[in-house]
Design a protein around this nucleic acid. Sequence first.
DNA 1: AGGCCGATCTTCT
DNA 2: GAAGATCGGCCTC
Length: 206
Amino acid sequence: MTPLPPEFYDAGVIDLARRCIGKVLVCRAEDGIVAGRIVESEAYRGPEDQAAHSRNGLRTRRTEAMFGRPGTVYMFLLYGMHWAFNIVAGPPGTPHAVLVRAVEPVSVDAGSIERMFRRRFGDAPVTRARLAAIGNGPGKVCQALSLDASHYGADLTGPRVWLTDGEAGPIGRSHRINVGYAGAWQHRPWRFFERGNAAVSVAPRS
DNA sequence: AGGCCGATCTTCT
DNA sequence: GAAGATCGGCCTC
């Protein structure tokens, strides 16, 4: 449960996206701590990357956190509906960030997985399919872990949200998902995932 | 398993 | 006015 040191985030964004796979994202909420092992991530590398919110150096109230220190949290609203969680990468001042696209629930106390499940599915019966779908998408990650606007700009050294060490299986990579608007940048292999993991959001999965 | 659709809101044209 | 780093429901195959 010990937070990874600040130096972990002081790396190139592509490298950080790869090294986030297998690490455990831990969130402290009012009703207890919950956690998910990161199984899918994507790197966004503004200002040149035309898929990034910070493309062309775009700096607004929304993107401001991307220009902050490595290890800062960047939250944004997807389609006006769902929150997405991102980790700002180094070097400082460059608007780079890693999107966490999927997590696998991790038990940190007797009720932690139950809490994540209920946030996602309410009173629905527990099934294998629903368990695998607790965090298999960027919006679902935030719903399961209760990540929202209040986490914007938070520091990943804790105490509210942090990363702790974890192991990863074989790592695959692909183009990023749903960035068809980004011209040639849409083809960059900047998505990483744990091969064969059921909680990875969409194909390609292996 | 896969396609279409509506929800909902920030940012930009 | 439109598009988007999405999701879940409903439909057809």
